[in-house]
């Protein structure tokens, strides 16, 4: 059993556990699964009631849970890497541990933050939570996540990677 846990988990175990996060959050805390709101939450806490409406009007107390949630994700990442992995598999390839890699991460990160907030959600809020609640705009969002990702990988891949 311990050996199985230390190996990478099969897709069906991972899929089931990720799927169960949606009802768990709803039953335990009455919240819908979503992660990119945490970016807006941090931004609104930084500007502290000033700045553009998007941050000024953000309900900082009502969304505080997103910050607690992502802190948990980071600690879960620590636990899994330190205590539950036999051979630590790399998160990023070596080529990203360079100046060029940093540029790619910052630019790519910018697109993630901008795109997720413009679309109104990311893989968790739209793809997992939205589609599972039969919210059709979330299916549209998910299709265009893949349009963007496939285009970059296949058309611009030779320039970027």
């Amino acid at each position: 059993m311990k050996e199985l846990i230390m190996q990478p988990w099969p897709w069906w175990v991972s899929g089931i556990l990720i799927g169960l996060i949606v009802p768990a959050l709803q039953i335990l805390a009455g919240k819908g699964f979503g992660i990119s709101t945490s970016l807006q939450q941090v931004g609104a806490m930084c500007t502290a009631g000033y700045g553009p409406d998007y941050l000024k009007n953000h309900n900082r107390r009502g969304s505080m849970w997103t910050l607690i949630f992502v802190m948990g994700i980071a600690i879960g990442g620590f636990i899994a890497t330190q205590f539950l992995s036999a051979n630590s598999n790399p998160f990023l390839p070596e080529s990203y541990h360079t100046v060029g890699g940093i540029v790619r991460l910052v630019v790519g990160g910018f697109l993630i933050g901008f795109g997720a907030r413009y679309a109104g959600g990311c893989t968790s809020g739209h793809a997992i939570n939205g589609i599972s609640n039969l919210n059709w705009p979330s299916l549209v969002a998910t299709i265009f996540f893949f349009v963007g990702g496939l285009t970059v990988t296949w058309v611009l891949g030779s320039l970027i990677f």
């Binding site: 790519g108 993630i112 795109g115 349009v147």
Partner: peptide, 17 residues
């Protein structure tokens, strides 16, 4: 926004979570 997000996901290999 969806397309922009997908591009960032492909470049960084990570979505927000």
């Amino acid at each position: 926004g969806g397309m922009i997000f997908g591009a960032g996901w492909a470049i960084t290999g990570a979505c927000p979570g």
